[in-house]
Amino acid sequence: MLTSLILLLVLMILGAIVALESKDLLSGIISLGIIGFALTVIFIVLQAPDLAIVQIIVETLTLVILIAAVLKTTRKDTSEKTDTVKIILWITGLVCVIVFMLAAVKALQYLPEFGSAESLRMAKVYIDQGLALTGASNLVAAVILDFRGYDTLGEATVLFTSVVGIIAVLRTVGRKQS
């Protein structure tokens, strides 16, 4: 199982590199689909069927929205010549990556080994008493709608706000004619 997980992760990394470096925006977006659908398979391997169902549909809808936006505007990537600004950007990116990597290496030492049961300190109550306390067989549904209902209410609010924002940004009625 670990081997298949590592292979899928390498596939995701290759897809990410192709998505960022391709000259055509449409092919970049389709390479983004590689990452999303590989992530779906990883969720199935990790015993998370809820996440796999949501991820596969969300990925499809995301691709539809991005492709529609790109077809409406332009497919060409802006030509990137190598100049001094570009070199400064490269150095800045490298510094950001190195700083984050150092922090991540420091943090990785405190994580428990992959697949060990040590990481279950918080979820012990949810797993042991979730069925008795809520009556829902699906423990994920029990967590998102009963133990952590505030989280889901906040999520619904964020989704509502983003829809309001999209309609406000793309509205055509009441816009000043320039």
Binding site: S119, I127, L139, V140, A142
Partner: peptide, 8 residues
């Protein structure tokens, strides 16, 4: 069971 909290 795997941990349901991160999944949620």
């Amino acid at each position: 069971f795997v941990d349901p909290l991160p999944q949620a």
